[in-house]
Simulated scan of single mutants.
Amino acid sequence: MDIKYDDSSKAVRCYRDYVQSSADRTAARAFRKRFGEALMSAAVKLHERLLKYPDAGTYNAIYGSTDNRIEIKRAVKEREALVLKVRVDRSYRKFFNHMIEDSNNVLLKKDWQGDFNAIKVIFVTDVNNHDYSN
Rank of each mutant, 00 (worst) to 15 (best):
K10M: 04
R49Y: 13
V127Q: 08
D24T: 09
F116P: 03
A11C: 01
V88E: 07
A43K: 00
T58M: 01
D17T: 07
H98W: 11
R34M: 13
R16G: 03
L51D: 08
A11I: 02
Y59K: 06
Y5C: 09
Y18W: 13
I70W: 02
Y15C: 05
I119W: 03
N128I: 11
E78A: 08
L39I: 14
V127W: 08
N97T: 07
I119K: 03
D89W: 02
T58C: 05
R25H: 07
D102N: 14
S133T: 15
F96E: 03
L51P: 06
D111S: 15
N68R: 11
A43E: 00
K10S: 14
I70P: 05
K45A: 15
E78D: 12
K52E: 05
N129D: 15
Q113S: 01
I100L: 15
D126Y: 06
I100Y: 08
Q20I: 02
N104R: 01
E101V: 13
S9V: 00
V83S: 12
R29Y: 06
P54C: 09
N117I: 03
P54F: 03
D7H: 06
V121N: 11
S91Q: 11
E37T: 15
R74F: 01
N97C: 09
V86G: 08
K110P: 03
S41V: 14
S41D: 13
M1E: 00
K33F: 08
R90F: 04
S21W: 12
S21I: 12
K77G: 11
F123C: 10
K52F: 03
F95H: 12
A27D: 05
R29S: 13
Y63G: 02
G64R: 05
C14P: 09
